[in-house]
């Protein structure tokens, strides 16, 4: 008799231990890529304006902010022309808001996949998050044109931009992990997301500078990781900000906590996704 080899895999009820198994996500990187690619390809299909939407969304928001907050409410902008000041913050904000919304709904939207095929479920919210990068790239070009128009040159700090971009994605993904897993069980989440992003926008210094916050409270403000991201973007692109330093460190810590707990919750719920979605 042939000696029985070890099983490749043992399927049993998960023991509740915290196993991340990120190596498996790496094995499925091609699926991640294809799901991202699908989301991007399909996004502006059958729209009259197509990819122009990626330009219009941040530009129109910037115009509205400039008129109401910049012109009428006279919100200070750290000495930067208000449109640039707002756009540099809207760039990561819209990336975040879009990625958060998409990833939160991603599992429920992929119901047909989840109940019919196995793959690490993490791939789904990850793909939804990363697919938001394309709109970001388009809007980034708009920002560069705007900066050229206002005669503002990026400083050497721009090399740190990828780091802040990563931080924005990590924030969106970790919140997305929590919300997408919760959404599978409680469809209430879907209706909460529009409010959540709206409140989150007010808690983030997009329309106003964080210098408006009294100094002792500023670091605490960093508990909202997007505050760190937005101030980081302004610093890296425009060279001026009050946000870096303690605020940023608090933001990084907050993201790490949110990401690790999010992964953990997601992994714990993963086993039952196919049964309750």
């Amino acid at each position: 008799m042939a000696t029985q080899t070890m099983p490749v895999l043992v399927l049993q009820p998960s023991s509740g231990w915290f196993r991340l198994n990120l190596g498996e996500v790496w094995d499925y990187r091609e699926l991640l890529y294809f799901l991202m690619w699908r989301d991007i390809k399909v996004r502006y299909k059958q729209t009259a304006l197509g990819a122009v939407w990626a330009v219009l969304q941040p530009t129109l928001t910037m115009l509205v902010f400039s008129i109401f907050f910049g012109r009428l409410a006279k919100v200070p902008s750290d000495g930067i022309p208000y449109p640039i000041f707002a756009f540099a913050a809207l760039l990561p904000w819209q990336l975040f808001a879009f990625a958060l919304t998409e990833s939160s709904n991603s599992l429920v939207a992929s119901q047909n996949l989840i109940t019919k095929v196995y793959f690490p479920r993490l791939v789904v919210p990850m793909a939804a998050t990363f697919a938001a990068l394309v709109d970001f790239a388009v809007a980034f070009v708009v920002l560069l044109i705007l900066m050229l128009f206002y005669g503002i040159h990026p400083t050497a700090a721009i090399v740190f931009l990828p780091f802040f971009l990563l931080l924005a994605l990590a924030t969106a993904l970790s919140a997305g992990l929590w919300l997408s897993a919760l959404n599978v069980k409680y469809r209430d989440v879907r209706y909460t997301i529009p409010f959540l992003t709206q409140f989150w926008l007010f808690a983030t210094p997009v329309a106003y500078p964080s210098s408006l916050i009294p100094k002792p409270w500023r670091a605490l403000f960093g508990l909202n990781p997007m505050a760190g991201v937005v101030e980081g973007f302004r610093w890296a692109l425009l060279g001026k900000s009050n946000g870096t330093g303690p605020l940023l460190l608090v933001s990084i810590a907050a993201v790490l906590v949110l990401l690790i707990t999010g992964l953990r919750y997601f992994r714990k719920m993963e086993a039952s996704f196919a049964d309750i979605v």
């Binding site: 099983p7 043992v10 399927l11 049993q12 009820p13 109940t115």
Partner: peptide, 13 residues
């Protein structure tokens, strides 16, 4: 592997 068993196990080769 779409869903987990409640009890028992499966060895897959």
């Amino acid at each position: 592997r779409i869903t987990e068993p409640t009890q028992g196990s499966v060895e897959v080769y």
